[in-house]
């Protein structure tokens, strides 16, 4: 029933969490645990949150990203947000999250 998918992969020191669907307060609850388990399991130097498939995100998504940023930083890693839609990026920039995490757009990745 959850309108969110979370695909987690680890390779060469990078943990990549690919999200697709909608992030709101309802869906963020389960996501947090899944992502944190992977963060603490792999303790990767680089954690990438892929938002390319996220069609909707509100402040719960922002909280999810900033919360993961704090955890990754605590473990000495860095967090990158990849491929946000213009709408997701608008929220990230409004909150100044772009000053804390690196935002990589699709063009820049390839």
């Amino acid at each position: 029933m959850d309108k969110i998918k979370c695909d987690i992969k680890y390779a060469d020191g990078e943990l990549r969490v690919e999200l697709s669907g909608e992030i709101d307060h309802h869906t963020a609850k389960g996501l947090r645990e899944r992502i944190d388990t992977a963060i603490f399991l792999y303790r990767a130097e680089s954690v990438v949150l892929g938002l390319g498939g996220v069609g909707f995100m509100d402040s719960a998504g922002l909280g999810l990203i900033l919360g993961r940023y704090a955890k990754v930083r605590e473990l000495g890693g860095r967090l990158t947000v990849a491929d946000p839609t213009p709408e997701a990026e608008k929220i990230l920039r409004l909150a100044g999250a772009d000053k804390l995490v690196t935002i990589k757009k699709r063009e820049a990745v390839k």
Binding site: S59, A60, G63, L66, I91, L94
Partner: peptide, 17 residues
Amino acid sequence: FWSSDPSGERGGMGFTI
């Protein structure tokens, strides 16, 4: 960024948005 949630998992950005 003000939130009544002490866990800090909510952005505190609802009204600002």
